[in-house]
Design a protein around this nucleic acid. Sequence first.
DNA 1: CGTCGCGTTGACAAGGTTCAAATTTGGTGG
DNA 2: CCACCAAATTTGAACCTTGTCAACGCGACG
Lengths: 220, 220
Amino acid sequence: MLVRTNQTSRRPNDDHLAALAGERVSSSEFKYRKGTELFGEGDEPEYVYQIIFGAVRTYRLLSDGRRQINSFHLPGDMFGLENGDAHRFSAEALVETRVRIMRQRSLLGSMADRAGGTKDLLRLVTQTLQHAENHMLLLGRKTALERVAAFLLEMDERQSRPKVMDLPMSRRDIADYLGLTETVSRELSALRDADLLRFVGTTQRQLSLPNRDGLARYDA
Amino acid sequence: MLVRTNQTSRRPNDDHLAALAGERVSSSEFKYRKGTELFGEGDEPEYVYQIIFGAVRTYRLLSDGRRQINSFHLPGDMFGLENGDAHRFSAEALVETRVRIMRQRSLLGSMADRAGGTKDLLRLVTQTLQHAENHMLLLGRKTALERVAAFLLEMDERQSRPKVMDLPMSRRDIADYLGLTETVSRELSALRDADLLRFVGTTQRQLSLPNRDGLARYDA
DNA sequence: CGTCGCGTTGACAAGGTTCAAATTTGGTGG
DNA sequence: CCACCAAATTTGAACCTTGTCAACGCGACG
């Protein structure tokens, strides 16, 4: 289950981590089963992660169990990089997930050296910050319908607008991402009734967006 | 109104920007009247700002005018640093405000050179990101009362727990920060009735927190 | 074939919004 | 310094969106 590889064994699409790290930084691969934790809030940050296949949710909890999901990570995404000495959120596999991992120390060290490493790192953190800023606007000011539409468009885009989109997360996960509850189901049904989305097959986690522009009009 | 200074003229509390910049990077000062814009969403980022006195709100708008305030900036705070070629939000002075400004190019350039510049920059962006993550949790999952309590505690802490706290922003601003509306007034009144806050003098923008622990129990 | 987890849907409750009115505060000019 | 006007804040009342709770259905899996 643990496979040691090397940066030189670069395949077409594992650019990111390797590119960031520069040379001579070794990475491993690891697989997590559905629902298992990659790391928990408060843990000491040891690795940086990049998803090979599968999906991960990162989230924070309030003491009474209310949960806010910060982001969903899909293949290619990097996450888990921390500046301080503790993870600020938890990460769990949504489905069976394979990741490439690299020691934070190695990565940070090698980035400090490499020319342009600073910029790459800054870009990474900035991307996360931008996502957070967009999400604050959504959580603070958008209606339920707008949130769900925005979510669908986000996932669609991040999966490169496929014919059939796969949602690796439950309705509950979506709700905890969007700051809603059962409303997610209701709004999805409403969008289905308006023929802005179609469920594919029998499952409710595969769907298509027959009218992206129409859907986009529901996002403020 | 525009005063050219130099990094060498360092007074006790203008450490931040100067410290980040390192040597030989010149800064200016500038004053903005209440309500005026420092920069707008989409503008090309030219300067980095540090508040000397006053306060600033940064925010984004939806097309129909709904507003989400990302953050309030108080004396000492730095903001406006962008990686890309456009500001991702607008900034306005809440009250008469004096800022130190420095060209982004100069700052970024000198930070790339200076030893530890990377880390400083990363720390700055990471701080902003952490604030955003906390705020997502607040916007996504906290009740109105919890939000208002959290807001008061945040402002209290950032003003170093003064006897009398000054709020430079309107109720509307607070609401747009917390994702609420008139509820802010109601919850403030509720907290006043519970003697967890007291308005000072005749104004509604100065108040004291006679029982911070009690208040903290209202924040989840 | 039964059980379990997930999703949908309905009925109802509640928290928060909206709109408007009353009140207070702050600013301005005389 | 005072009077007056505009802006901000508080508060009330009705309403509405979303949350809560529960029932039901369906597919997956043992």
